[in-house]
Design a protein around this nucleic acid. Sequence first.
DNA 1: TCGATACATCAAAAAAGGTTGATTAAAACA
DNA 2: TGTTTTAATCAACCTTTTTTGATGTATCGA
Lengths: 118, 118
Amino acid sequence: MKQEMNLQHVIFTQGMDLDDVLLNQVFEKYEGKFKAIADKKRIRIMNIITRKGEINVCELALLMNMAQSKLSYHLKILLDANLINRVIKGTSSYYSLNQDEVNHLLSSELCCLFRPTW
Amino acid sequence: MKQEMNLQHVIFTQGMDLDDVLLNQVFEKYEGKFKAIADKKRIRIMNIITRKGEINVCELALLMNMAQSKLSYHLKILLDANLINRVIKGTSSYYSLNQDEVNHLLSSELCCLFRPTW
DNA sequence: TCGATACATCAAAAAAGGTTGATTAAAACA
DNA sequence: TGTTTTAATCAACCTTTTTTGATGTATCGA
């Protein structure tokens, strides 16, 4: 998912000026964030995390009615996109929303879906 | 991409209360919009359209350095998600940004990428 | 009417993403 | 130390999305 600075990238960026290269990096950054959020299961996960404030995989699996491995897969995608945070306590992983990141990404209306105050 | 009101859907929504069903519809709606924008080529298309105000496929193909059929494919995805508008003039299709939709979806910072005033 | 232009659409192939069940690893506790 | 709990990871499989090159359709000008 994440674009490496590989040969293809180098070839692609030849003949582009600096502005274009920088702009392209911005596009790639947002592509990653939007890909993470572009899934109704993951939107629902974020919504539940928001309402619970903090939740572990076990409890989330029950609420989502979803197998643990599948959940871990989706949580990793959200975590890699920096949309959620993880804190490990004992054998459990507790996840919470990265409110700042979400606020900087989504419209204020949309953020309602991911705000504890409702 | 678009979820139909099929048997699976009906089974899925059994045992959920009305709030859950409605919330799920919201999640599906945003899944669609985010999927459309979760691609750096399409983000770049939107950015170019924004700066040009209005542009046809031919000119866009030159600027993007992209085959016409591929471009039509991506434009259709953005159009279906209601993120851009199309007006047909003669044999040409002119595309422009759906500013309202974008504003309701993205943070004001992010909207900068899709505002003519820069 | 006969090309030429502009664009959408199609079917097949390739690439990316998601699911599944099993395995691994680390902490907790008897 | 042996067992249980929690969650991450893996490989095989399946599904969805994207690319490709070709074809279809409508408009325009000669």
